[in-house]
Amino acid sequence: MTPFLSVLTSVVAWVVAMLVVASVAVIGPARLRETWSGLRDRLWDARRAVAVVCAVLIASAVGRPPLLDVSRLFGLQATAFIYGLEGGFVAWVQATFATPALTAYFSWVYVYGYAFLLAFPPVAYLALPRTTTFSRVLVAYALNYGIGLVLYTAVFAHGPRNVMPDMVTPLLFTTQPDVMALTSEVNVNSNVFPSLHTSLSVTVGTFAVLTHEEYPRWTPVAVPLSLSVVVATMYLGIHWLTDVVAGFALAFGSVALAYRLVEPRSDPGVPRDGPEDDQPPSEPNASD
């Protein structure tokens, strides 16, 4: 088995296992059964959001290689600027905090924790009787990817491990070289601004806070995990602080926009507003 396939298999295995545990613990068996029976209707309800996220993912997969060339040739060469802006911050993070245990933790979080963090919300929000939150999280994902792709194209920059190899160790790739086979398959080393790991994790964390009443058990899992991913991007020497700050901005912007774009449906045809329905009544909830 090639390194790529073996890593992919282990990521899929981890994510499936964690999804099963989290589904039982967070969503609960009763709601899961209910979801199963109403799955088709709910997906149909949220068809637009599903279509949008699929379209963006396909466009991203197809468009990335040619856009990368555009970025190389015409993108804003930003490495020098970012490096001049923050200097050795990431090197300082590594020099101050790096221990083998933390490295193992953050490497795990960056690959496996992140994949789980992204996979669980769609499942959880699909299990809600109303599909508004489900649609919103999908739209927020799509916005993250779409805007991220535009910024990747507009800005050409390399990460700290590529600029300061004397001070920043590529911890992820030195401890788990196989993982590089996976990450290089889905990303290239000049796509660092913004950090999509940060923005998608923070998006999930923000949704977890906003839906605390629905899934009180998810919030204390999602928020620390998403912040761990954020720290991991820098700790592992992959992203600049600048990328992370931009990732936060992208996340909050995407969540706010998703709330604005997907209005809670006042479905005249389905007038029963269950008490478990908690659409945030006002938009400013979106932390903007």
């Binding site: 390194p3 590529p170 790739f173 030195t174 070289p177 196989d178 590089m180 086979a181 990450t183 290089s184």
Partner: peptide
């Protein structure tokens, strides 16, 4: 083509 010198050595 591999992504880094480390993966090349591992290979």
């Amino acid at each position: 083509v591999l992504p880094s010198d480390i993966s090349a050595v591992e290979s």
